[in-house]
């Protein structure tokens, strides 16, 4: 990883390598042959914190619609449904994560990859565009979190 961009979340500085693209739902995307590999960005991992449980509700190979619900995740701080970042054919999940999801925290841009999709990556964002997206959604995320925690 040569160049990284950073985004400040409170005290935490999230890093985003520039050797890949990004999806609006906080996943990175890297083309590998005819598939695109996805994983959580540092932004997503910071919000989740320690991941305890990852579960997929589809079986590859399967045709996905963009934003289709494909699974769920539970972490120390949160739970969330997970959605397809783009349409296409989901070809593989990272099987290693099902027994032990800790790579998501330890190496989110490498061994912690989530799945691969065969499809067009035209809708993905450049690192710079993703940072602009973060600047827009971070205030909303903070509000959502505070609202759910009943904090003023």
């Amino acid at each position: 990883m040569s160049l990284v961009l950073t985004f400040r979340m409170g005290q935490f500085e999230a890093e985003f390598p520039t050797d890949r693209c990004y999806a609006r739902n906080h996943m990175w995307a890297q083309r590998r042959g005819d598939v695109v590999r996805f994983g959580f960005t540092a932004y997503a991992v910071r919000l989740l914190q320690d991941v305890y449980f990852l579960d997929w509700t589809v079986e590859p190979p399967v045709e996905l619609q963009p934003r289709q619900e494909i699974g769920s995740i539970e972490s120390k701080k949160a739970e969330s449904a997970l959605f397809a970042p783009l349409g296409g054919v989901l070809t593989a999940f990272n099987e290693q994560l099902l027994d032990d999801p800790s790579a998501i925290n330890l190496d989110q841009y490498g061994a912690g990859w989530l799945f691969e999709i065969r499809g067009s990556d035209d809708s993905l964002l450049t690192p710079q565009q993703y940072l602009e997206h973060l600047a827009n959604v971070w205030p909303v995320a903070q509000k959502t979190i505070k609202g759910q925690l009943n904090e003023p």
Binding site: L47, R67, A78, S80, V137, I145
Partner: peptide, 24 residues
Amino acid sequence: KSPAIAGGMLEPGDLKLDLSNLFG
């Protein structure tokens, strides 16, 4: 993940944050 479907009466978010809206 929704308590109303899982047999609970609690409001979502009583146990953990639900980040589904943030994640798409």
